[in-house]
């Protein structure tokens, strides 16, 4: 039984819970520090990253989650979740709370406002062709040397992996395609459980 948490402070939690179930994991909604106990991985959903950052601090999840991620807990962030995992942001709020861990710089709302939100097919390394839904999405402006770029739109990476951390600027949870979640569960989470890198 692979237990994967979904940070349930705000955002499209229900969709991630459904996708993880189809991908063969047992989803657990995470609202308080005790919910983090016994997790094999965690998903940071889409939503508003400024709101989630504030709620992480108010509900005393910021510190515990940071240490779990630093200790190797596998995590997958979509859209706002990617921003939370980034080590640096541009065009965000200066005081915005981040979990960090991924050696990337992201640009918030990089493609523009909602009228520029779009759908596009992408080739994601290790997964195949994925239909990406980009909603006021960020992109990766800089990726560190340890970061593997799995997919890009134009010259901008939109899916990245660094060891136990995975992030996409698009929302596979909205399309009913569980392959990104299965990739996370079967590759990143299973690897961490097996003790391999």
């Amino acid at each position: 039984m692979t237990r994967v948490g979904v940070l349930a402070l705000q955002g499209d939690v229900r969709e991630h819970v459904a996708a993880l179930t189809v991908a063969g994991a047992v989803p657990v909604e995470v609202r308080r520090p005790t919910d983090l106990e016994g997790l094999d991985g965690i998903v940071l959903p889409g939503g508003e990253s400024t709101t989630m950052g504030k709620l992480l601090r108010i509900f005393e999840l910021l510190g515990p989650l940071r240490s779990l991620l630093a200790g190797g807990l596998p995590a997958y962030g979509t859209c706002a979740g990617m921003i939370l995992l980034a080590s640096e942001i541009v065009d965000g709020r200066r005081d915005q709370e981040l979990l960090g861990g991924l050696d990337i710089t992201v640009r918030r709302n990089a493609f523009g406002s909602q009228v520029h939100s779009f759908e596009a097919d992408l080739d994601v390394a290790g997964v195949g062709t994925v239909h990406g839904v980009f909603i006021r999405a960020p992109w990766v402006e800089r990726a560190g040397p340890e970061v593997e770029v799995l997919a890009s739109v134009g010259e901008h990476p939109v899916a990245v992996r660094q060891g136990h951390l995975l992030a996409t600027s698009f929302h596979p949870e909205l399309t009913g395609d569980e392959r990104m979640h299965a990739f996370f569960v079967r590759r990143l989470v299973a690897q961490a459980e097996g003790g391999a890198s």
């Binding site: 889409g46 939503g47 779009f118 759908e119």
Partner: peptide
Amino acid sequence: TPLVKRGMAEQLKGG
């Protein structure tokens, strides 16, 4: 698209 429009609202849930 409808998905992009409806998906935007999904991101606001719980807020």
